[in-house]
């Protein structure tokens, strides 16, 4: 019984973090029509940022995550101007290749500098007993932080002028220009925020699981499945998709071997694509 409770709680808490990473992917797709294949690389960068700050400055990932957020926005905006700006109006294949090459560069450099030896952040906060199951406090913080960042994003997109401009650009970029929106800035900012969410999700997950520079790829794939599950273009759907994904992953491993989980996840992806291609919360 404790094992089930533990699995369900872990699933929810980690699922929220997966959802956060997927929201970043979703935002970039929704605003820019770009499928960001460098998402995983940036998730891994977030993990390493968190790791090095913890190792050399002794700062907890749950504090440094705000720095990671800020750095992520700036890094994402730089990446936009370097890799995407010139091809943003080109067909989707060009932007796909642009983000893919970005990913190859980051992972190449990361492999060279950080090697592929696994690393882990041991924050050592201990556990709490919930309904008889012991849950590491880090996992609980990961869930709470993910919820907070999702909420902040919502407030930003719906309550600020800049956030509304991002939504306007996602619906009709020409009309947004007519309203006086600097669309180049908004596109770069949207990419920056999407990247920052990936890095934040990475930084949070790194406090729970060990990782290498290649680990990001796994979470990138999860993000894609989550986006399809919840409906591309629907941030709330991404959160729901993340929860489903987290629960599946944790509950299924009680009964079957870990190695089968990705197979089942992609089976679900295929089924969703066949049955309801717009996703659970997506629109036509």
């Amino acid at each position: 019984m404790e094992a089930w409770i533990s699995a369900v709680l872990s699933g929810i808490l980690l699922g929220l973090a997966y959802g956060l990473a997927a929201i970043g992917l979703n935002l970039i797709w929704g605003v820019m029509n770009v499928i960001n294949l460098s998402h995983g690389a940036f998730i891994a960068l977030g993990m390493f940022a968190s790791y090095f700050i913890f190792k050399f400055a002794g700062i907890s990932p749950f504090i440094s995550v705000f720095l990671v957020l800020a750095v992520g926005v700036v890094l994402g905006m730089i990446a936009y101007f370097l890799a995407l700006h010139r091809v943003i109006l080109a067909p989707e294949l060009s932007t796909l290749l642009a983000t893919y090459s970005l990913s190859l560069i980051i992972i190449g450099l990361g492999t060279f500098f950080f090697t592929t030896n696994p690393r882990a952040i041991d924050v050592g906060l201990g556990s709490v007993k919930v309904f008889g199951a012991y849950i590491p406090k880090e996992k609980i913080l990961v869930g709470i932080y993910s919820l907070i960042f999702t909420l902040l994003l919502y407030l930003f997109l719906y309550k600020t002028w800049t956030g509304k401009a991002i939504r306007a650009v996602s619906m009709n970029i020409t009309a947004a220009k007519f309203m006086g929106v600097n669309t180049t800035f908004i596109l770069s900012l949207a990419f920056g925020i999407g990247i920052a969410l990936a890095m934040v999700a990475g930084a949070l997950i790194a406090s729970v699981f060990p990782f290498t520079i290649l680990t990001g790829g796994v979470y990138e794939l999860k993000s894609f499945v989550i986006c399809v599950l919840g409906g591309l273009g629907s941030p709330l759907g991404a959160l729901v998709g993340g929860l489903i994904m987290g629960l599946l992953e944790n509950v299924l491993t009680l009964k079957i071997q870990v190695g089968y989980v990705p197979f089942l996840e992609f089976l679900i992806l295929v089924i969703i694509l066949l049955v309801k291609p717009t996703g659970i919360m997506g629109k036509e």
Binding site: W161, T174, M179, V181
Partner: peptide, 19 residues
């Protein structure tokens, strides 16, 4: 017309006053 279809009427008007 090029409205922002997923925004409310109020938000559309508000976007008009973006500058």
């Amino acid at each position: 017309r090029m409205l922002f279809p997923e925004m409310t009427v109020y938000e559309n008007l508000e976007m008009g006053a973006y500058t």
